[in-house]
């Protein structure tokens, strides 16, 4: 039976151990495009969609964290308690594809594919999310920064499945922006997530490098330029954006130009730094 359906995480890891070549399928919104376009011909598939555990999420109020199952669809992140806990994630989830894609696609899929244009990934990067992996050998966690290692490359081992993501619940000083040429259903030309975590500014950038990039110089600049992160001046915000744009490593492709992408990062970063503040 080439479609192997798991109903629990342990069943899934067992199947994967026995079928190391199986392609992992959850929402299908990435994999099936490749199959339909004749780019991939899976010989067997491990279906995770029917594992209820993967569709769960929970907030740990003592740790101030939220853990979201890899099978939670984007649509579930757009509103409600997940959106309240991680507003930037809700904003990112809302920009993924179409409503139909958001009903099927999952964060596990976004992580599994690990495209530099993956919409939720800048949020995971800025918030320094932890990725949970499970296999017959047990469970392990990897920080996002070590998880995504290249364009469409991650450090998941072949016999592991992505089970969940843990993010800090840090309050509302976070935001996500994505530039696309259409007002809906569009692949990111440039995206950014800005967040203040433990009074430290963070900025992650999507679609402007081989992986999601952290703008470490810009973060450092901002941390040093002001003590009042709720009151960033336009001038400081502008410089913050300019520094971030120098940290982007965009390329020219059919979706945009490197020059525009770097420019867009500058604008998004500076706008995000002051979004929701008085200025």
């Amino acid at each position: 039976m080439p479609v192997l359906i798991a109903h629990t995480i342990s069943e899934a890891t067992e199947i994967l151990a026995e079928n190391p070549d199986a392609t992992i399928l959850n929402g299908g919104t990435d994999l099936m495009v490749e199959v339909n376009f004749n780019h991939r011909h899976p010989s067997s598939v491990l279906l995770l969609r029917n594992v209820p555990q993967l569709r769960e999420w929970s907030i740990d109020s003592s740790q101030q964290t939220i853990t979201i199952g890899a099978g939670v669809p984007y649509a579930a992140m757009e509103t409600g308690a997940i959106a309240a806990a991680v507003p930037a994630l809700a904003q990112a989830a809302r920009t993924v594809g179409s409503p139909q894609i958001r009903a099927a696609g999952t964060m596990g899929g976004n992580l599994g594919t690990c495209s530099p244009a993956g919409d939720t990934l800048p949020v995971l990067s800025a918030l320094e999310a932890t990725i949970h992996l499970s296999s017959q050998d047990g469970e392990r966690t990897v920080p996002f920064g070590e998880f995504m290692v290249g364009p469409k490359k991650n450090s998941r081992l072949q016999h592991e499945i992505i089970t969940a993501v843990t993010l800090p619940v840090t309050g509302n000083r976070q935001g996500y922006s994505k530039v696309g040429v259409r007002n809906a259903m569009v692949i990111s030309v440039a995206s950014a997530c800005f967040a203040i975590v433990d009074d430290t500014p963070r900025l992650a950038m999507g679609s402007v490098g081989p992986t999601i990039l952290r703008a470490v110089k810009a973060e450092k600049f901002l941390a040093e330029a002001t003590k009042d992160l709720d009151n960033i001046s336009d001038e400081i915000a502008r410089e913050f954006g300019e520094i971030a744009s120098t940290e982007a490593r965009p390329i020219d492709d059919h979706r945009s130009t490197a020059q525009y992408r770097a420019h867009a990062i500058k604008v998004l970063a500076s706008r995000l730094a002051v979004r929701g503040t008085a200025s």
Partner: peptide
């Protein structure tokens, strides 16, 4: 064939999804 047009929309367990992207 890639979930960018919605012409194939069906409901699966009550969710409206693109059937071209469901194996």
């Amino acid at each position: 064939e890639q979930g960018e047009c919605g012409s194939c929309t069906v409901f699966i367990d009550g969710a409206a999804v693109c059937s071209c992207l469901v194996m």
